[in-house]
């Protein structure tokens, strides 16, 4: 049985391939989404922002009346919470929607999670998910098996003797060439920061403390140092 090991290799490769399909879809789709987050934003959510103008609300208008005017204009029902501070009126809704009125301009921000990509992205970010971290490690090991065993799946000219070798070399060459052409992480000019930057500078000379602290500051106990 000279090639019995190859039969086993293929059988295990096949079953691990089946096992990995779900994980691969999750990681590939969320990986593409993460790669393009600069252009597409966070595709986990469908985000909606709309702005419109309302008549100016004079400073003398009572807070409750001012808040009601903004809520009426936003047409989202009664807010779960509200605030008037500075030149802002803010409303928060149970749905997560946030309404902000600054002067005469009202901004309504709302969003809802997209089912599949939202979950895929959540799973991809392993931070904070203890068990999933190890599941993801196991998946990575399975991928390594798929890659390693794939090399030896076929013998002869279609395998490592010719075609397989050429394709493997092409695949390896892509990152190698990229690093060679781009220069890798070390290609960025990194100057030695000056002394001030590396060590930080001392705090500015403390200004005289105000006679009375502004309202709204809740004192805290000192940190343990």
């Amino acid at each position: 049985m000279p090639n019995r090991w190859r039969a086993w290799l293929r059988a295990i490769h096949r079953d691990i391939g089946y096992l990995a399909i779900g994980f691969t879809v999750i990681y590939a789709v969320s990986g593409i989404a993460q790669n393009h987050i600069e252009d597409w934003g966070d595709v986990s959510y469908k985000t909606t922002t709309r702005t419109f103008a309302i008549p100016a609300i004079a400073d003398g208008v009572p807070d409750a009346v001012a808040i009601q005017r903004v809520a009426d204009a936003a047409q989202l029902g009664m807010p779960a919470s509200s605030l008037r501070a500075g030149d802002e009126i803010r409303l928060g809704y149970a749905s997560g929607a946030q309404v902000t009125a600054i002067g005469t301009q009202v901004t309504v921000q709302s969003r809802e999670r997209r089912a599949f990509i939202g979950l895929a992205n959540w799973l991809h970010k392993a931070r904070g998910k203890k068990a999933w971290k190890y599941i993801a490690d196991a998946y990575a090991l399975l991928l390594l098996y798929l890659a390693g065993s794939g090399i030896f799946m076929i013998k002869g000219r279609m395998g490592l003797r010719w075609r397989g070798a050429v394709v493997i070399a092409t695949g390896v060459a892509v990152p190698v060439l990229y690093v060679a052409l781009a220069g890798g992480p070390g290609s960025q000019t990194t100057h030695e920061p000056d002394e001030v930057a590396t060590t930080g500078s001392a705090a500015p000379a403390p200004a005289p403390a105000p006679a009375a602290a502004p309202s709204g500051l809740k004192p805290l106990p000192p940190d343990d140092e």
């Binding site: 501070a85 802002e88 709204g216 809740k218 000192p222």
Partner: peptide, 11 residues
């Protein structure tokens, strides 16, 4: 040390 909420921050 102190803590502020949103309203106090705007104050």
């Amino acid at each position: 040390p102190f803590e502020v909420d949103y309203k106090a921050l705007l104050g």
